[in-house]
Design a protein around this nucleic acid. Structure first.
Length: 935
DNA sequence: GCAAGGTC
């Protein structure tokens, strides 16, 4: 059997189809690993790397004394399977194979992925011949030929890839651990370091430093307005920017009528059609459409998986020869792009455009099939698909052509100029609206004619600092510098944001992002520079070309890292201190309103709040919503009243929740509570705030004497305030309980969230669970509850209130549970039944029940039910149990009938009325009881 | 818990 292994499923599928014809191929999908079978051949796809490098066991504990970060430099490295199912399937086939062909992508990583497969196969089959097919395009010709002419795996090229893997792991892991431990960072806030991410972060930090250091300078731009044939035109001074104000002024003064036309120069410009799309260009285009880099790749991946576009991860900007443009255009002849396709046909260029980069593993990104708006689905995907289609059209359209016009003027002694442009041939611009070029059509001028000087203008401007990087601009820069790959660049940006190193788009570094960069620049500069990647690539080239060995490259790299660690460890204390101090700055939002010391954002578990750094001397604090709503982060805006930075809550996949000034928000949310106090006014609240009393409980804890002094009122007035505050606090506590109860017992629906239901109840005077337990279910219908829901909610509330009362009366929780389960949670009901019946119903001993009934009856001021002893109960119930089931005995006993003697004395009719048991059944039992008693 | 590189 011939086993062919491709890098990914989609390639495996196509290889099989090319070799055998689609109809002949049998597809089997077992979970993760699909494979394609025909004749005596199995084709299967991997999922990129199916193993990953890691340190041997024993290096997992970051804080191990035996294995500090430095020890990772020389720790042994192993390969661990990451795709166990795929590895398992491959090895199963490999055991039976008589020939294996590795058909992974034709690049360095592809060769390494091939070698990984090779080693996994050798582990189960030592003898099978393994060869390597290399194809430059996934076409029938290429595939068939490459498998026929398969050669050997290139172990040198694979080793080059391995050197990258190991160097990245060793540098990244050791430095990440060192910095994180030194700065005392927890598992959810590690400080990561890496060959690609660190230089990328450094670029963003660098740009921020440039912006900070930028000193704007003034300059002046001169222009004049004139007209020809009733058309107004503006001319610019040919000097451009005047940096000397005196010069600008002189030129302005010297600008005088008459305005004479000195030259009329017409020209011709070719406006070249854009090159085919690679990943970077796709991201840049998407960014113009307002789509982030990661989301664009996510949608592109989806379009590719659904067969609408070609593989979206490519560096190639040259269409392969195998792509037959004219034939391919046929798919757009009808449907959403029929009009554009017709235009393209009429404006076809002889050869499609080509970009600078040409690789062979994948074609540039182009639409592989036609789709209309409905088939694509979501808006973003459609926008992206349309862009890809139109870009494809543009690359096969003729260039646009412009007529350019330049008019030179002389105004007094000063030279001015006007430029214009007119499209002669729209070419590709007819189908590609994404980069607009404005026409500027000028009236006709003749040399020597005189024009009026309608006005002149000297505009003062300022030079601008360089712009922060947008995601797409950064990705372009990364590509220029060779950082990351087409598949990983956008992920690096997401990673930096995830580590809270950067924020916003355009991006700027956070304090900790900058601190990490500056520590690394000082002590481990190599990792912050793009040259590390350049050098690595050179070394990889040498390994691939057989000029160097992987062992030598690795040992040199390890030696270098070791030297860096010498420096880092020497300065460990200073680095740690610096990082920690600067992180604290990130949490500090301004002065405490009470004592003036810095206020900080604090987090304990999932609850977060603003607290004073003077704690415990100063206890000022203001609550924030729990971290489940997002992590509280300091913003740049500062509150004008309190001088505190604004705070927002950030959560993945949710828009930021802007809290604003945490103190303003604290005051606002507590004002409502204060106003619940009968004697409180808004003015009163302001006075309280001025005395640094922000919450009802703070008012209470002040105590009457201090409060009186703080507010300038009498002690008795202060006492009254405190009493009212205590009542409000109790009320609020009950409301909270009600809200909790509602959220536990009501299923939220559209337009009927928990808070809405609670608010509706409170506004109807049902402000706590107790009130709810007494409420008429009809009143609840207005809170958008159905009748059944309302009835069940009231019943639940009743039960909860009853249970609470029973607890208060002193019934222990474990026994109470037994009473509740048997339906005796209502205290009134509990003391109105006979202990014998309760015992039968609950399994609790009669003695215990009598005690509990006594407790409850006293609290209710009700007579205590008859007390009976265990002996009397047992003597009575034992003979009855012989004749009757517990279902029959329990209701009788609850009514006080628990022995043959009592049964004989009882009146059948009365018993039937009380217990609901049929007269005949009672009479039968009575007969039996008589017999027993007569004995 | 760490990197960067594949792919889904």
């Amino acid at each position: 059997m011939h086993l062919i292994i491709a890098e990914k499923n989609i390639v495996a599928e196509r290889v099989a189809a090319f070799l055998a014809g689609k109809a002949k191929v049998q597809v089997t999908r077992d979970g993760a690993a699909a494979h394609y079978v025909f004749d005596d051949t199995v084709v299967m796809g991997l999922r990129g790397h199916v193993v990953e490098v890691d340190f041997v066991e024993g290096y997992n504990n970051w804080r191990s004394v035996e294995h500090p970060p430095r020890s990772l430099i020389n720790a042994d490295i192993i390969k661990k399977p990451t795709e166990k199912k795929i590895v398992g399937a491959m090895q199963k086939f490999a055991k039976k194979a008589t020939r294996v062909t590795i058909a992974t992508d034709y690049d360095t990583e592809g060769e390494l992925i091939g070698k990984e497969a090779y080693e996994l196969i050798r582990a189960v089959n030592a003898k099978v011949p393994i060869d390597r097919a290399r194809f430059s395009a996934i076409t029938k010709d290429e595939i068939v030929k490459s498998i026929q002419e398969a050669t050997a795996l290139d172990f040198n090229l694979a080793a080059a890839g391995e050197s990258r893997q190991i160097i990245d792991l060793v540098w990244g892991a050791s430095l990440t651990r060192f910095l994180s431990i030194t700065a005392h960072r927890g598992a959810d806030s590690i400080l990561s370091v890496g060959r690609v991410q660190s230089p990328t972060l450094a670029m963003i930090v660098d740009r921020e430093r440039e912006i900070e250091a930028f000193v704007p300078t003034k300059y002046w731009m001169l222009s004049l307005a004139t007209e020809k044939a009733g058309i107004g035109v503006e001319a610019r001074h040919i000097h451009g920017r005047f940096t000397d104000p005196a010069e600008a002024k002189a030129a302005y003064e010297a600008t005088k009528a008459p305005v004479k036309v000195t030259d009329v120069i017409t020209g011709h410009k070719i406006d070249r059609a854009p090159a085919p799309l690679d990943t970077t260009a796709l991201i840049v285009g998407a960014s113009r459409l307002g789509i982030s880099a990661s989301y664009a790749m996510n949608r592109a991946e989806d379009l590719y998986m659904r067969g609408f576009i070609s593989y979206p991860r490519t560096d190639n900007t040259v269409y392969p020869k195998s792509l037959k443009i004219a034939e391919h255009m046929e798919i757009f002849a009808h449907g959403a792009f029929a009009k554009e396709a017709g235009y393209v046909k009429d404006h076809l260029r002889s050869v499609p455009t080509r970009g600078k980069k040409e690789t062979t593993d994948h074609p540039p990104i182009y639409p592989t099939s036609h789709a209309n708006r409905e088939e694509i689905g979501d808006d973003v995907s459609w926008k992206l698909y349309e862009f890809i289609v139109r870009r494809f059209f543009a690359t096969i359209c003729i260039d646009a052509e412009w007529e350019t016009l330049k008019i030179n003027l002389q105004a007094g002694f000063e030279p001015y100029t006007i430029t214009g442009g007119r499209i002669l041939e729209p070419g590709w611009r007819g189908v590609y609206p994404y980069s607009k070029a404005e026409e500027n059509i000028l009236p006709e001028f003749t040399v020597g004619e005189t024009l009026p000087l309608l006005s002149k203008n000297s505009e003062e401007k300022e030079t601008q600092p360089p712009a922060r990087y947008s995601q797409s601009r950064l990705i372009q820069r990364m590509e220029e510098l060779g950082l990351g790959t087409k598949s990983t660049r956008h992920e690096v940006i997401s990673k930096l944001a995830g580590r809270k190193y950067i924020e916003g788009n355009p991006m700027k570094p956070t304090i900790i992002g900058r601190a990490v960069t500056e520590s690394l620049e000082e002590f481990a500069g190599t990792i912050t520079e793009p040259t590390m990647t350049k050098t690595l690539e050179e070394h990889m080239g040498d390994i691939a070309g057989g000029k160097n060995t992987i062992d030598k490259v690795l040992s040199e790299s390890r030696k270098m890292l070791s030297g860096i660690f010498d420096d880092l460890e020497k300065n460990e204390a200073a680095i740690g201190r610096d990082l920690m101090e600067r992180t604290r700055e990130e949490q500090t939002i301004g002065p405490c309103p009470v004592c003036g010391k810095p206020l900080r954002i604090k987090r304990v578990g999932s609850s977060q709040f603003i607290g004073c750094s003077g704690y415990p001397d100063c206890t000022f604090n203001a609550g924030l919503p729990p971290a489940t709503w997002g992590n509280a982060v300091k913003m740049n805006e500062v509150c004008e009243i309190h001088g505190l930075n604004h705070v927002q809550l950030l959560r993945k996949g949710a828009p930021a929740w802007k809290i604003g000034c945490p103190l303003c928000s604290h005051i606002k949310s507590n004002t409502d509570a204060f106003l619940l106090m009968p004697a409180m006014t808004e003015e009163g609240v302001r006075k309280l705030n001025a005395a640094h009393i922000y919450t009802v409980s703070e008012l209470i804890s002040r105590g009457p004497a201090v409060l009186a002094k703080n507010l300038g009122v009498t002690t008795s007035a202060a006492e009254k305030l405190i009493r009212e505050a205590e009542e409000v606090l109790a009320l609020l506590k009950k409301r909270t309980e009600l809200k909790k109860f509602v959220s536990k017992n009501v299923t939220p629906k559209r337009g009927r969230g928990h808070s809405k239901v609670s608010a509706a109840l409170i506004s109807r005077g049902i402000a706590d669970v107790e009130a709810l337990s007494r409420a008429d279910p009809q009143d609840l219908l207005e809170a958008k509850l159905s009748e059944a829901e309302a009835a069940s909610l009231v019943a639940e509330a009743k039960s909860l209130i009853n249970i609470t009362r029973m607890k208060e009366y002193g019934v222990p929780a474990i026994t109470l549970k037994k009473y509740v389960n048997a339906g005796f949670d209502d205290p009134e009901k509990f003391v109105s039944v006979h202990p014998a019946g309760l015992s039968l119903a609950t399994g609790v001993s009669v003695a215990t029940i009598c005690n509990h009934q006594k407790l409850v009856a006293e609290k209710l001021c009700r007579p205590c039910p008859e007390k009976i002893s265990k002996a009397a109960f047992d003597a009575g119930i034992t003979p009855l149990k012989k004749k009757a089931d517990p279902e029959l005995l329990t209701p009788l006993a609850l009514a006080g009938v628990y022995s043959p003697e009592l049964l004989v004395k009882a009146d059948v009719k009365t018993l039937k009325a009380v217990t609901g048991i049929e007269e005949k059944q009672i009479a039968d039992l009575q007969k039996y009881a008589k017999k027993v008693t007569e004995k």
